[in-house]
Simulated assay, not measured.
Amino acid sequence: MNKNDLRVLKTKHNIHLVLTNLLKKKPLSQIKVTELCREANINRGTFYFHYREVDDVFKEFFGEIMLDLKESYHEPYRHTDFFDVENIDPKTVRIFHHIKKYEDFYRIIFSKEVSTEYYYMLFDEIRSIFVEDKNMVHHGIPNDYLLSFSANAILGLVIEWSRHDFQETADEMNVQLVNILKKYGNRGDARL
């Protein structure tokens, strides 16, 4: 069966939604295949056709979300070789639209009830996006520290937004980020 088959995509989407709902109630380690199948209204054979264990579902879903995050991060840079903080249009920033799209997932990640393992997985993914950014200016700062600082700056904004129960719109968060970059970023070389 083709992985791009509409039936496969719908089944996997349903399993991802069910996993997200179950993660709101309990940690990943306590979710069993039987429970996931029952809630997703699929049989175990269907589950095992696509996955070996519940962890595989999480990894696949996490990977899809991180791919979307990466695309969202790169959006303001698609049409420019040089990033000028002073002239960035907040409407080109897409990170917060991504967060809003996957709000339930991020509510789980930033919940005080879940393992910090999720946070570090997200941190590592965001950091890896910055690793790929060849335009990041280091100014003599050790690369590892700059990458970690940058990843935590983005996560800090998202955590605070989460603490506000995601009440601000994604566009309002874009403006916040751009204002912070303009005020505290090094002119002409700060990156989102």
Rank of each mutant, 00 (worst) to 15 (best):
F62S: 02
E64N: 09
M66R: 02
L69N: 09
E71Y: 04
S72Q: 05
H74Q: 10
R78H: 08
H79G: 08
D81A: 02
F82L: 04
F83P: 01
F83W: 02
F83Y: 12
D84L: 09
V85D: 07
N87I: 07
N87L: 03
P90V: 02
P90H: 09
K91N: 11
K91C: 05
R94F: 02
I95L: 12
I95V: 11
F96N: 10
F96C: 15
H97A: 07
F105Q: 01
R107Y: 06
I108Q: 13
I109C: 14
K112G: 01
K112P: 05
V114G: 02
V114R: 15
S115P: 11
E117Y: 08
Y119K: 10
Y120R: 06
M121Q: 11
D124S: 15
E125N: 11
S128L: 08
S128V: 01
F130R: 11
M136P: 01
V137Q: 05
V137D: 07
H138L: 11
H139D: 15
I141D: 00
P142N: 00
P142G: 03
Y145N: 09
L147K: 07
F149E: 10
F149L: 14
F149R: 04
S150F: 00
S150C: 14
S150T: 11
A151G: 14
A151S: 15
A151Y: 10
N152H: 13
L155S: 05
G156A: 07
L157V: 03
L157Y: 10
V158I: 15
I159G: 00
I159H: 03
I159T: 01
R163L: 08
R163H: 10
H164L: 10
H164A: 03
H164G: 07
H164R: 04
